[in-house]
C-alpha cells in the first residue's frame, strides 16, 4: 500500500462552528472500514484539484465510524474545503503523528490549555480523559480565544463547565458588556487553577507564542519540562517524513510530533527561524 495515495471519504456533514471555523464529518466510501486514531493525530486531507494539507483530527477516538476534522479557513485548500457539501468526496491519508499522553498522565492532575483553533486537536484528549475521569486527579481546561463569537464547541464547553469534577475556564481577548466571562490572555488563568505541580500533566495547543507564555507560567508554578506537552506546527507536504518540510531542528513534526514533550524540544523552542 503506497502511503502517498489518499483514500476516499464522503462528507456526511459540514458544520459551521464560528465565522471562520468549520467541522467536516467524514465517512468511508467503501465498506465498513473503521478509522482508528490516537488523540492528537492528524490526517492529510486532499481536496480534488486544489491540494492537500495536514489537519488534526478533532473527533472522539472511541467513535471510529465517523472521522471529524475542525479547521479554520486560512488558505486555498481550507477555503475550498469550506465550500464542500454533504455527499462530496475528500481524500484522506493518515492518521499520522504522535499522540497526547493520556495514558501516561493517569493518576495526575491535568491542565489543558488551548488557544483559538488549538482546542480542536485537544478535544480528542478531552474525550479520552473524560472517558476515564476517575483515573485522573483534578482536571482544568483553560481556553482562550479572540472574542466570545470565536469560541469553539460552545455547547460542549457549556456542558463541561457545568460538571463539578472539572474546572473549565474560558477567556477572550476582547468582549462587549454582554460577555460575563473572563477577559485577558489564557496564561492569566493558569495561576487561578488548582493543581499539584509535582503530579500534573499539562497539554497545550495554540499559537506558538501563546504556548511559550503558557509554559513559562506553568514552570513558574513548579511544573517540570517532563510533564508539559505541546502540539507543534510546521509546513508539511507528505506527513510521513519524506518531504523534509516539517523539520524542526532535530525533529520531524510529522513523525516525531506533532505532540512533543517540552523537555524534548526545549533546546529549539523559542529559537528564531528554526
Amino acid at each position: 500500500m503506497d502511503p502517498m495515495i489518499p483514500t476516499q471519504y464522503k462528507i456526511q456533514r459540514v458544520k459551521k462552528e464560528t465565522q471562520d471555523v468549520f467541522t467536516v464529518e467524514l465517512i468511508p466510501t467503501e465498506g465498513e472500514r473503521k478509522f482508528s486514531f490516537g488523540a492528537g493525530q492528524f490526517n492529510m486531507l486532499y481536496i480534488f484539484g486544489t491540494g492537500e494539507i495536514p489537519i488534526s483530527i478533532s473527533g472522539n477516538p472511541n467513535k471510529t465510524g465517523v472521522l471529524i476534522h475542525t479547521t479554520r479557513t486560512v488558505g486555498m485548500v481550507t477555503k475550498a474545503m469550506s465550500k464542500l457539501k454533504a455527499g462530496d468526496t475528500i481524500g484522506v491519508r493518515g492518521p499520522y503523528g504522535s499522540t497526547w499522553p493520556v495514558k501516561e498522565a493517569i493518576g495526575n492532575d491535568i491542565v489543558i490549555i488551548a488557544g483559538g483553533i488549538g482546542l480542536a486537536p485537544l478535544r480528542t484528549a478531552i474525550y479520552e480523559i473524560l472517558r476515564e475521569r476517575e483515573s485522573y486527579g483534578r482536571i482544568a481546561i483553560l481556553y482562550g480565544t479572540r472574542t466570545p463569537d470565536d469560541i469553539l464547541f460552545k455547547r460542549e464547553l457549556e456542558k463541561l463547565k457545568s460538571r463539578l469534577d472539572l474546572d473549565v475556564q474560558v477567556t477572550v481577548d476582547r468582549a462587549a458588556r454582554t460577555w460575563n466571562g473572563n477577559v485577558g490572555v489564557v496564561t492569566t488563568l493558569i495561576p487561578r487553577v488548582r493543581f499539584d505541580p509535582k503530579n500534573t500533566t499539562a497539554m497545550i495547543c495554540g499559537p506558538e507564542i501563546m504556548m511559550k507564555y503558557s509554559i513559562s507560567e506553568l514552570m513558574k508554578s513548579g511544573l517540570s519540562a517532563e510533564k508539559i506537552f505541546l502540539s507543534m506546527e510546521r509546513n508539511m507536504k507528505c506527513g510521513i517524513g519524506f518531504c523534509g518540510h516539517c523539520q524542526y531542528g532535530t525533529e520531524f513534526i510529522c513523525k516525531d510530533g506533532p505532540i512533543f514533550k517540552y523537555e524534548r524540544i526545549k533546546h529549539l523552542f523559542g529559537k528564531r527561524e528554526i
Binding site: 479557513t73 486560512v74 480565544t145 479572540r146 481577548d173 496564561t187 492569566t188 507564542i209
Partner: peptide
Amino acid sequence: EQRLNAMRLQLLDIYSIKVPD
C-alpha cells in the same frame, strides 16, 4: 510586569487570521 506582559500578548491578536492572499 505581569499585566504588561499579558497585555502585550493580547495586543498581538494571536488568534486573528492573517491571510496574505
